[in-house]
C-alpha cells in the first residue's frame, strides 16, 4: 500500500499574474485548517497541461495575512486547479521520508484521486461568467 500514492505532482509556480478582463471572473475560496503560510494555486486550461504541463496561471494566497481567496479573470472554458497549503512557508510541498505529502493539498471540485492526484476528469470545471468554487484544503 505504500506504493499506492504517487508523489503528488510538484507544482512549480510563477509570480502571480492577473489578466484584466473581468468578463469571466473565477473566485476560489479556500477553507483551511491552519492560519500560517500560503496556499499555492495552479490553474490549468487543458487536460494536457493539467496532467503534466505548465499552468496557465498561478498565484499564492497569503493565509498568514488573512487572505483566503484567489481571483482569476479568464477566457471562458474548461479549467482545473491544483493547490497545496505551504503551512510552514518554506516554499515547497513537504513530503514524508517515503515521498508522501505531509502538507494539505486539494483539487478543484474538491476532487480526490484514486491512488494519485485527482485526474482531469474529476477536477475539470467550466468558467463562464462569474464563477465561484470553495475548496477545502485541510
Amino acid at each position: 500500500m505504500t506504493h499506492i500514492l504517487a508523489v503528488a505532482a510538484l507544482l512549480a509556480f510563477a509570480a502571480p499574474a492577473f489578466a484584466q478582463s473581468a468578463d469571466n471572473r473565477l473566485t476560489l475560496t479556500f477553507e483551511t485548517g491552519a492560519e500560517t503560510g500560503a496556499i499555492m494555486v495552479a490553474l490549468y486550461d487543458s487536460e494536457a497541461a493539467y496532467e503534466g504541463g505548465q499552468p496557465a496561471r498561478a498565484t499564492q494566497v497569503d493565509v498568514a495575512a488573512g487572505q483566503l481567496e484567489a481571483v482569476f479573470d479568464l477566457p471562458a472554458g474548461a479549467y482545473g486547479v491544483k493547490a497545496f497549503h505551504d503551512v510552514n512557508g518554506n516554499g515547497k510541498m513537504d513530503t514524508n521520508p517515503f515521498g508522501m505529502p505531509t502538507e494539505p493539498f486539494a483539487f478543484s471540485n474538491n476532487a480526490v484521486g484514486n491512488m494519485g492526484p485527482a485526474k482531469w476528469d474529476r477536477a475539470r470545471f467550466e468558467v463562464s461568467g462569474a464563477t465561484a468554487q470553495t475548496i477545502r484544503i485541510r
Binding site: 500500500m1 505529502p101 484521486g113
Partner: peptide, 21 residues
C-alpha cells in the same frame, strides 16, 4: 478500496494510504 489482494474500484477516492486503510 485497493488492498493486499483487492484492486481499487475506479470510484475509489484515495488521497493517502490512510484513506484506504
Amino acid at each position: 478500496m485497493p488492498g493486499f489482494g483487492t484492486v481499487a474500484d475506479p470510484r475509489a477516492k484515495i488521497g493517502s494510504a490512510d484513506d484506504a486503510s
